[in-house]
Amino acid sequence: MTAVLNNSIVQRLLRVPPAYYVFTILLITLWVYRPAMLNPNVLGVFVRQNAPLGVLVLGQLIVMRVKSIDLSGGGIILLVNYFISSGLFPDASLAFFAAIALGTGTAIGLFNGLMIGKRHASAVIVTLAVSIMLVGLVQFLSSGKPPGDVPSFLNDMYDTKLGVVPTPVIFWAFLTLIVAGLLSFTVFGRFVDSVGESAEAAHFSGVPVERTVVLAHTIAGFIAGLAALVQTASIAVGSVRVGLDLPILSVAATILGGVVFGRGEGGVWGPFFGVLSFTFLFVVMTAFGVSDPGKLIAQGAIILLAAIFYGVRLARSR
């Protein structure tokens, strides 16, 4: 067994993020048993549903790479959804709503970053508290009732396609490309890597650790604002519950993609395929008539196995 594990090919295979294996297995399962589901139009609809999650994951992976976490995305989505659907800004343009969403997300991200980076407060508690406050605020403002309708141009945009690919999916892939570039080709990306490996070593090497953590959270907030726009466009109505499960799901997808607190071997595309794996898991389970509880169990088991796979590999590399 040890000899097999020490084999260079096995070692190389173990370094591949679990999301790629899960995605491949699910794709082959569909191809063999339900080829009709691989129709681009059908798949496009399923993938499009997970575009908000995919966008939110991009922020989550940045903060997780600096050994932090952001659970406030649900609150940001809810607040932006309220701004857009409550009728507070009648006849406002897309640019105005985008500015509101990005401004809100960035401000909340900056606050998270300052509390975590400068004050050294626990990221779990700070972002959880922010989310609780935002949820309470939105429910108070809307008296617990769905606020109203979302301007039709947002939903119309959400329904557009480029060829057979839905626009939200293209937007998500484009953003992934930008974040990949940000982390691969900028000084900030190097800082993120070094802080994730060891904040202390990074500090003594001259890396501005606190500023990097603050910036990572600010970017995550900005991205959560974008996710809020996509999510609001997708449901087309106001809600006091929308997006609240997305932060935890985004953590799960990021882990599946091979990015674990402080270690970013899965890069940006690992979590991208993590989200796609969740999408395909849903498609496969639906195609095989598995009930919703069964989907939850499968989702949990996959996260657990992926984490164990990663943990065992990490232990071997030490």
């Binding site: 050994k67 932090s68 050294h120 959880l128 508290a129 609780i132 935002l134 309470g136 607190f261």
Partner: peptide, 28 residues
């Protein structure tokens, strides 16, 4: 008092308590 604002106040208290504490470790 509205049950909805209770949620927000719960979050604010949590934030205040966390803000009061200082610790060496950064992150989670």
């Amino acid at each position: 008092i509205s049950p909805f604002i209770q949620t927000a106040i719960k979050g604010a208290i949590l934030m205040a308590v966390v803000g009061l504490q200082s610790r060496k470790k950064m992150g989670l």
